[in-house]
Design a protein around this nucleic acid. Structure first.
Lengths: 202, 202
DNA sequence: AAAATTACTGAACAGTTGTTTAGTATTTGA
DNA sequence: TCAAATACTAAACAACTGTTCAGTAATTTT
């Protein structure tokens, strides 16, 4: 054999890129094989089925991401902008891949979402112990809301870029988003009306 | 002919439901025809192509929604919860349909997103003239952020329900979300740190 | 009532899909 | 060096896709 593990890895890398760019259902084994200059049957030989290939692609991409993310968190906790740019510096592929995972639904989507929520929760806890969190009444739901806008910005990347007129990775666009977000989350933007000043009972 | 417009309308209704439930690409003409008890060729006869059917389904669903939404806005502007329940009372189909439109990407997705953003913008303006808006530095980007969490909650409906343990249409879950959202948007949740108390320059 | 139009079907076409099979080349282990 | 295992391919299968075609039934128009 010419170079077992290397060919397999190459195939996996190409698959991840193509899945990230076009989605799982829209990427055929034939297309991946063609891009790799290889016969479709070889993909089956190495991975068994398309589903298995997808799962392996998910596992490896999520694994890398989590590792990198943890490193980045320990590294630089306070500067959002530089963290954001660190994330984007990894290139569009992993972010787009996650986008596709979320879009595809199913088990991995569920897991990814849950992981994002719990990351938000631990962020809130960190902020709390740093004395930078106000008295949040419902931390879990709050974390969920934070997750929604966070993942929303990943999912709607293209739309955002069209509206703000620039790459989401670029400094001006990233700053715009962060400033708006910071104002919302630090000062609030709405003045309570008399009717819903108190929280609705439940 | 047995009842021209009626058959066409029935087909369209079934198509909308199936698209909403399973997505556009995942719903074949044969499946729609089977559900309708009709031959696949009849769909082609009435709509020409699948794409045309999809576009017609989009046009009619978006049209109905916008009309209903405008009526609801004039009707009851202040009570978020009852508005939310009005929205949900229309049933899951239109909301899921929009979800699929957003997921599918493309032109209609773009339009829908842009419409949602501009609706958020006009909400901000309304709030401002009602004296219920703080001094927002970047209303456009702020409207965009609001849109992200709004559409996010539509896209991730299933995940949210799994985490909060109940239908998103139910009163307790809806209240949870709204209370967390209100606190965030009215009081803010983060205390500014010294380093990013001032907005980052650009 | 005859003619024209419209509603509708069954069968097939051509393309794509994931996967299988049978076989060849290449590499490894003994 | 010989045998076993692995890497890899060409061709085909079966299932599915959107769409076409030829034809029949029902309805409208004249």
């Amino acid at each position: 054999m010419r170079s077992v593990e290397t060919t397999r890895e190459q195939l996996l890398t190409i698959a991840v890129e193509m899945f990230a760019a076009n989605g799982f259902a829209q990427t055929s084994l034939r297309a991946i094989a063609k891009q790799a200059g290889v016969s479709p049957a070889l993909l089956v030989h190495h991975f068994g089925t398309k589903d298995a290939l997808i799962k392996e692609a998910m596992a490896i991409t999520l694994g890398h991401w989590v590792a990198d993310e943890k490193a980045a968190m320990l590294d630089d906790e306070s500067n959002q902008l530089s963290h954001w740019q660190t994330v984007m510096a990894k290139g569009a592929t992993p972010l787009n891949f996650f986008r596709q995972v979320l879009l595809a639904g199913g088990e991995y989507s569920q897991r990814l979402f849950a992981a994002a929520v719990s990351e938000s929760e631990s962020l809130l806890e960190q902020m709390k112990s740093a004395g930078r969190l106000r008295d949040v009444k419902d931390p879990k739901t709050t974390a969920l809301m934070l997750t929604l806008s966070g993942l929303g910005s990943v999912l709607f990347m293209d739309h955002i870029e069209k509206i703000l007129g620039g790459s989401i990775a670029s400094e001006p666009v990233a700053k715009k988003l962060m400033n708006a977000n910071n104002q919302m989350l630090q000062e609030g933007i709405f003045v309570p009306s008399s009717s819903n000043e108190k929280e609705a009972g439940n």
